Computed example of a mutant assay.
Amino acid sequence: MDTNNQNITTRPAINTDLPQLNEFLQFLVEAERPFDPTLKDGKIFYYDIQELIQDKDTEILVIEENNEIIGCGYAQIRSAKAYQRHELFGYLGFMFVKPQFRGRGINNLLLNDLKKWVLSKGITEIRLEVYSDNEPAVKAYEKAGFQKILTTMRCEIS
């Protein structure tokens, strides 16, 4: 792992980042397609990025190296289910690092900054969703302290 990350910074996303973020979202969709046969063809927008940028309960961070955006992710404060111990939790999503920058701990830098934001809201539970067959992502999140608690299963019937 390259530890030469001193030219790397994170910052909140702004509207001028939208073209790059929308491109990252399509890269993410294409990377996830092999794991999800239910995804529609063509461009898919899991969420409205501009709306997330403006949402007070969401923090979208971009990560830059030498002023080039190389990744992103968001944390969003969500309400837990009535039967869960915590009232609110931080949900992480849109975790993306450009392929040529992977393997350098950049996703961990992003995760740590998102965790700090969630903690600053007085919340100590964070969750995310990852395709169970996406073994590199599952391993990376487990290494970062996440544990599997639920598997969604599907079956096509006719």
Rank of each mutant, 00 (worst) to 15 (best):
F89Y: 15
T9N: 10
E59S: 05
E65L: 03
G105T: 02
R11A: 00
H86N: 13
V29M: 02
E135Q: 09
R104L: 01
D48Q: 10
Q100D: 13
L114N: 01
K143T: 14
I53S: 07
E68N: 13
L28V: 00
A13R: 01
K56Q: 03
I49L: 15
P12T: 02
I44E: 00
R104D: 03
E125K: 14
K116C: 03
N108I: 04
P12E: 03
Y91L: 15
K43Q: 09
N66Y: 08
N66R: 10
P34Q: 11
K40V: 14
N107I: 00
P37H: 11
M95K: 04
I70H: 10
P34D: 15
L114G: 01
R104F: 03
L21T: 05
P136E: 06
R154F: 13
L111R: 02
M95N: 14
V130D: 04
T151R: 11
Y46D: 05
G71M: 05
F35E: 07
L21K: 09
N66L: 06
I157S: 04
M95I: 06
M95G: 06
F94S: 07
L110H: 05
R127A: 04
E156H: 11
K139I: 15
T151H: 06
E142S: 12
S132I: 03
I69L: 10
P37R: 15
D133P: 00
Q147L: 13
K81M: 12
T9S: 11
E65Q: 11
A140L: 15
E125I: 15
N66F: 07
N5I: 13
I106E: 01
L21F: 12
D2G: 12
I106A: 00
V97R: 04
K81R: 14
V130S: 05
N67Y: 02
I106T: 00
L110P: 00
T152A: 09
E65R: 13
P19H: 09
C72F: 11
S158Q: 08
P12S: 04
F146K: 05
